Amino acid sequence: MWLERNRDWAGYVAILVLCGAAWGLGQPFAKIAVSEGYRHFGIIFWQFAIGAALLGAINLARGGRLPTASHHLAFYTIIALIGTLLPNSASYTAAIHLPSGILSIVLSLIPMLAFPIALAWGMDRFSAARLTGLVLGLCAILLIAAPQSSLPDRAMVWWLPLALIAPLFYAVEGNFVARYGTGGLDALQVLLGASLVGMVFAGPLALMTGQFISPLPPWGLPDLAIVASSITHALAYTAYVWLVTRAGSVFAAQVSYLVTGFGILWAKLILGETYSPWVWAAALLMMAGLVLVQPRKPTEAVAAQ
């Protein structure tokens, strides 16, 4: 029994690491996707389309269905807007101007920003430790923005507020789902439905703004980056949700550290980015803030032991 339980937990840790590594690729892939002129609406449309195709195949294989009642469609629409279309529009635009590693550090603010939103909505109680974590996260942003030598180009600092839009929307999304639930939908159905509805919004916006990306060859690195990021996100999200059901949400929440760490590592290995001591100090402050804002509820019992 002891050996079986430890084997299970070794598998959970491996999946957690893989999720962190996959999600950490998101920012370097975003940087590559915008490197030759592709812009947010065109990229987001294909992100929705590729995700819908992959998740639809998984849903079909498991014999699942996709509810389409009016309240389900409304929920898909909200998630598509606040979970992808709006935050990713900001992220892809910021990726044009900011280093990938900086974007990974900024995204670590999600659980910190979620805390004051939860307080405002009456969903959480005040915690001095978690407030301290939020302050540390904000100090990390100041370490990136304030020193003259923190960024390769001082003009980049004006794009930091745009980069902050994405974690703010993700924090709102998390609290929205926590407060209102998913209407009986599982996570795969939510992501599939949001992807399908998101295509309806992103497609016309891409066409009207001249940002539509033709799927016809020739294909370059930006095209491959869009496909790879869409697939890795869909698979990592599915694996993460499975991990929550098996190992508990508190254990799975530790992926936040891995996403930041891998995001910086991939940016260094793939893009050759280098950072000033101020940025490394900001990353350490952000990690410390994450430690303080992580939930402290007891880990749920592991299913099927």
Rank of each mutant, 00 (worst) to 15 (best):
T93M: 02
S150E: 10
L143H: 12
A114E: 00
P99G: 08
A163V: 05
P99S: 11
W159M: 13
L131E: 10
A129P: 00
R179K: 14
P167S: 03
L113M: 15
L164I: 10
L136I: 10
L107C: 03
A95Y: 01
A129M: 12
V177H: 00
A155M: 00
A94L: 02
I144M: 14
I105L: 15
I165M: 11
L160F: 05
T132N: 03
G122P: 08
N88G: 00
L162N: 01
L134P: 05
A146V: 15
P161L: 12
L138K: 09
P111V: 12
A90R: 12
A90Y: 07
G183R: 07
L107G: 08
L185V: 04
G183E: 04
P116A: 07
L131M: 15
L109M: 07
E173I: 00
D124E: 15
A118E: 03
M123G: 02
C139V: 15
G133L: 14
A95E: 09
S104L: 07
S149E: 14
M112K: 06
F115L: 13
W121D: 02
A166G: 06
N175H: 01
V172Y: 03
A146T: 12
M123W: 00
Q148C: 00
F126E: 11
L131T: 15
A114Q: 10
R125K: 15
L103E: 06
A129N: 03
L138Q: 07
G101D: 09
A90G: 06
S108K: 02
Q148R: 15
G137N: 10
M123E: 11
E173P: 00
P111D: 09
A95H: 03
L86A: 08
T93S: 05
S100G: 08
M123V: 01
L142K: 04
S100H: 05
A163I: 07
S100P: 09
L160M: 13
V177R: 02
D186T: 07
V172R: 00
L113G: 06
D124K: 01
I102E: 04
A140R: 10
N88D: 11
L160E: 10
G181F: 06
I144R: 09
A95F: 05
S127R: 12
V135K: 05
S100F: 09
L134A: 11
G122T: 07
L103G: 09
L113V: 12
L131H: 05
I141Q: 12
L86Y: 11
S108H: 02
G174S: 01
L164K: 04
D124A: 09
S104Q: 08
T93E: 07
S104F: 04
T132A: 14
L151A: 00
S108T: 14
L131C: 13
P87Y: 09
H97T: 08
